[in-house]
Nucleic acid binder design. Sequence first.
DNA 1: GAGGAATTGTTTGGGACAAGAACAAATTGC
DNA 2: GCAATTTGTTCTTGTCCCAAACAATTCCTC
Lengths: 367, 367
Amino acid sequence: MRQHNLAALLERLHRGGPASRSELGARTGISRSTVADLVQELVARGLATEAGSSTRSGPGRPSPVVSVRPEGAVVLAVELGVDSATVAAVGLGGVVIGESQEDLAPVRPTPAATLDLVARSVQSLAGDLPEGAVAGVGVAVPGLVRRSDGFVHLAPNLGWRDVPVGALLAERLAHLGHPGLDVLVANEADLGALGEHRRGAGQGHDNLVFVSGGIGIGAGLILDGRPMLGAAGYAGEAGHMLVNQAGRACSCGKVGCWETEAGEDALLGGAGGTTVDPAAAVWLGVGVGNLVNLLNPDVVVLGGCYAPVFDEIAPHVAEGMASRALTQNGAAAHVVPSALGRAAQLHGAAELCLADTLANPTLRRRS
Amino acid sequence: MRQHNLAALLERLHRGGPASRSELGARTGISRSTVADLVQELVARGLATEAGSSTRSGPGRPSPVVSVRPEGAVVLAVELGVDSATVAAVGLGGVVIGESQEDLAPVRPTPAATLDLVARSVQSLAGDLPEGAVAGVGVAVPGLVRRSDGFVHLAPNLGWRDVPVGALLAERLAHLGHPGLDVLVANEADLGALGEHRRGAGQGHDNLVFVSGGIGIGAGLILDGRPMLGAAGYAGEAGHMLVNQAGRACSCGKVGCWETEAGEDALLGGAGGTTVDPAAAVWLGVGVGNLVNLLNPDVVVLGGCYAPVFDEIAPHVAEGMASRALTQNGAAAHVVPSALGRAAQLHGAAELCLADTLANPTLRRRS
DNA sequence: GAGGAATTGTTTGGGACAAGAACAAATTGC
DNA sequence: GCAATTTGTTCTTGTCCCAAACAATTCCTC
């Protein structure tokens, strides 16, 4: 009970930002006296702070504002890209405390070399943090990931296959003086969805589809407010959905896959391209229409290579959608560009690792 | 807290069947003394009974078995079909207490005539039940339903459009002496999914897709153990997913929709047909493959017109799936026929209406 | 068949903790 | 300056879960 209430308060502060005590009580249905007690405990654990006075105008005794203390729990969020690896220290409340980016071009992104670099970045960012504040390391990988142990089956963009990323990174971190650190590895689109849902274009929408464009197309699903991973964790593999039977051959051996018709290569002529092929954008819309029919989301967030060219492709995407989506569903779904860009995955990774602490603030050691 | 624990026990009994007290305690983490107290309360409220002794062999004091008392909360579940309407009284634990089927052919299924018949069936079944035991009425409709008020936008099979089924049925029941009865209306595929998940082919599987074949194709989704309805409640409208560009024109004005290629008309040559068209079964598999890729379920349940011919179509469906599904997802998903047949919707409707009572046993009046 | 081991129901006391009431504090507006 | 308003604080109360000790009943072994 206590734990449940503590978690409710902390989560509210983490997601909804600072609030006064009485506001917290009103939102959560907890009495003022109990809120006082709980906030005191959160402060004692270093997870929250009370400061200043509210900006609320009107009569009544002024109330100090309760906020999360970002340094109370920090996640080192990693995003593995083809040409670079980004590491960020993200604290409670989604505050980015530090960030570093490593160029992967010189090392060719072999698993060993890449994770060496990442581990060093993590160490350097973690060095500035108080002991025990680090809640974990979260890694976003563009590929098929088994979450239970951070095993990457396949990451076509990186050219990786059967790489135990979780184990390899944990091992390197142990050598660098961070033994026992939790390393969670997850799919890039799933984390993008989570990031946009909590901190980006999907705030306030509990049914969201994140479409991540790259060499392949991945989808991340937030349904009913929760990330949906499927039975084995491979939900969202929408790239090989059939959209165009008369289309090109896909690397998977099939024909007409969504990602062949509307992936980065088709849309922009490969990575770095800037000229949009309208036909490819229409196929993107056809696929989005299928997803919208099936899942009835309120928001579809286009991320990855789609975000920068959103304005250009939007009308074609709408055309493709209109050709498939039922009106009652299509009308409900807003298609928007990613609001966070590459930071979506970092925020998603942070949310993933913070979930434990948020659900159970008692586990966090006092600092 | 109390309520939460009561609900946990009742739900366990409802879903998992009879169990001894200590078993309940072990499963839920509640201490023996508390379980005793809670069970006593459930019994006092008429929601559970203790009887006999366990069949467990081994040393130790024998333990009476706790079961739900089906009559403690009963739902009148209605399934509206094209040619008939079925009404069943389903009690706690999914026990069917009574059932009746009405032939709709003579009345042509106009809303008024159909609901008149249904209301009388409900009344007759409810008459045998103790006062206050009826937890609600649940209606499965093959069409687009707004759950909040039971408004049916469109039910092509019935030929209905913009019919306030919930209000009409509640009104009729009020006239028949059952005022204030909760009437919940939901889509037939969604309830089929729920029914198969709780009582049928999907037991023990938390990620399930129910594909309901009829004139159209509807999908019901259970993801992460919970029904997924989408933002507006229209999730699962998979019938107009694109599967065959070179296909026939669909009634929706588009071409190549899943339901045109693999619905009842295509597969069996219309309602009542028995000869299977293998090509249509392959298209069915293509659509299933798309769903499997996107949602990674452990089970796909084929219901409606697919269940009776499952053995015949299974190989063709597998062929279609193989042409689309990624191996790692395809391997995980078992395609099985509906285990409950038409009763799936009835059980789903019962689960829907019982959810309230299960979540909050205190609300139930003592009987 | 007697006694020990094992398992479970029962009783009792204690403790955690949330809620509510009463009061104090601090602001706004007249 | 005074009433009204809102919020923090203190104290009491009651709910309710748990742990421990004990009783009941069966199985197993000798």
